[in-house]
Design a protein around this nucleic acid. Structure first.
Lengths: 326, 326
DNA sequence: CCCTAGACCGCAATCGGTTGCAGTCAATAG
DNA sequence: CTATTGACTGCAACCGATTGCGGTCTAGGG
């Protein structure tokens, strides 16, 4: 049906191996023949069959990108960037969603394994051990997690968190509440640590609530705790939670940023368009997507180098934070 | 390196063809041997190589899903659902983003063609002609577009639009302004037509502005026109535009929904979390994703049946609409 | 003028499965 | 008891591309 390398060979009057070489190692074929082959290929609209070449070379030219929840506004910019960057390098990417289920994550990796040259795992839910084990068979890059022996892209929330605390302290807030997500998340820890040290340095009080589910609902629920804490400013686990907190406060007649300031994390569209527009710790998600693919392709090509990239975060000030009420 | 069908054959003491058959047509092999093969496969952790079988069967068990912009909150729920549904049917999906560029869209389809059994095109930017041409080679399903000879999933915005107009008329609005997106979009047309007929039926006046870029910016810019129109209610092209309109009105000191009511389209997270929460025409995007994959797999398996599915939309009333000011 | 080193190109095996064809064997019909 | 049928299973030829090996031919050295 489709035009194959044989058709091109026939049309150009050469052997199939010559056609193959004109594409994979052009320097091995005489320029005149090369032209002839290229012309024939062009004329017949020949496109190499990736599956076939994958069979012999072991390179599929496909990547896997596994995220917890495509619909979470945090992920799409990362997916978009990763996919665009991969395409520039002639790679296609499978995007899969685990629905936050570690079980599904593992199965997914298993079935994907044969069809990709490597996988990007964004904030995996799997245990380190499981990931390490899988990492023996296939190049992996993890995002926002460290796993021994694997390349990683880390978005260092520490810096952004410090900035946020400074920003709030500068506005006169003396007591700040941290509204974390689920326990035991890598980012959550980073954030707590950085917030604690910044708070201490600046002499403001830091209280912690939670854990919360990392959704708007979770934020709404956490609003009560925020009020009880007596803090005048809150830093939420992510934008969704922040929006929930604002909503929850609003329902209790508390104005943001008039009475309480709220800071989010991620800098999603949703936060950007919220009213009040969220002050948020911006995650460089597109850069993370690109970097992850970059490291992955290095691992695929080069070998067992477990590189590590750390990307900075920084505070973006908008309208959900303001001076502490006096 | 990896375990192949031959290893399993050796381990089970049978020929490779028997192993192949135990997986692809189990009824052709004796149940005792089948067990033996299965046991061996299990023990060796054998997983069939999709690329290899694709070579002989022509079935890759992969699908392509092409959208204009992954980061547009309209798409992720669709992608998520499509991908999950496909996976249940043992299909993986390549997700690709064209950045709204028809050129990129075509190239993408070309390079993807050899690696997938079919492609879902969501709101393609390509001309019908180009799509029809490509459709000769590969099963396609288009979403929110009709192309001769291809299966389609249509989200009928008409119904939701009528509901929106009725809702607004019921609230006492006598003049409604339509804030469309770019010209010549299938949905835009559907929407205008439905709004016009509903308006006529209900005896309310309908004015149209635009065209606008389908972003928040576009909405902000359109706010002036909305005010000039003298209307007390607006129906925007999508949630993003609606949010922009609200923002633009707010900057001019106009309250929503106090003075002007605003209706969005799509029911995205962003709109759902907006403040005020958007009244919006809900698009059944997850269902659309599933249905598209369903039709695609039918086309892949069955043959040239160009099925067509129409999904209903309906109005979700939240807080951005209210009684007309008196 | 002969010999040799490249440069090119063809041959054929191979990647991992699939599948039409044919052979084996036992059960059943006649 | 023999012929036939059906259930299994093995054989081997593919699918489309890659690549080590070896052969052919020409240019340049001696």
């Amino acid at each position: 049906m489709a035009v194959t390398i044989r058709d091109v060979a026939k049309a150009a009057g050469v052997h199939v191996s010559t056609v193959s070489r004109t594409f994979s190692s052009p320097h091995l074929v005489n320029s005149a023949t090369r032209e002839r082959v290229l012309a024939a290929a062009q004329r017949l609209d020949y496109r190499p069959n990736r599956a076939a070449s994958a069979l012999t070379t072991g390179r599929t030219h496909n990547l896997g990108l596994i995220v917890a929840d495509i619909a979470n506004p945090f992920f799409p910019p990362l997916i978009k960037a990763a996919q665009a960057y991969a395409r520039e390098r002639e790679y296609h990417v499978f995007v899969a969603d685990t629905d936050e289920d570690p079980q599904a994550e593992e199965e997914l990796i298993q079935t994907l394994a044969k069809q990709v040259d490597g996988v990007v795992l964004v904030a995996p839910r799997l245990s380190n051990l499981a990931i390490e084990r899988l990492g023996m068979d296939l190049p992996f890059v993890v995002v926002n997690r460290r796993v021994k022996g694997l390349s990683a892209v880390l978005m260092d929330i520490g810096h952004g968190t410090s900035e946020a605390v400074e920003h709030l302290a500068g506005l006169g807030h003396r007591r700040i509440v941290l509204v974390p997500g689920p326990r035991a998340s890598w980012s959550s820890e980073q954030m707590s640590r950085a917030a604690a040290s910044a708070a201490e340095r600046l002499g403001v009080e830091l209280v912690v609530t939670g854990p919360n589910t990392p959704t708007e609902q979770g934020g709404v629920a956490a609003a009560a705790e925020v009020l009880d804490s007596g803090a005048t400013a809150a830093i939420a686990y992510n934008d969704l939670v922040a929006i929930g907190v604002i909503e929850g406060l609003d329902r209790r007649g508390v104005d943001v940023p008039g009475q309480v300031s709220v800071v989010g994390v991620d800098d999603t569209v949703t936060g950007r368009l919220n009213r009040p527009k969220l002050t948020t710790i911006a995650m460089p998600t597109p850069a993370a997507g690109r970097t992850a693919v970059d490291l992955l392709l290095q691992a695929v090509a080069g070998g067992r180098t477990a590189a590590q990239a750390t990307l900075e975060t920084s505070l973006t000030v908008r309208d959900s934070t303001g001076p502490a009420p006096s």
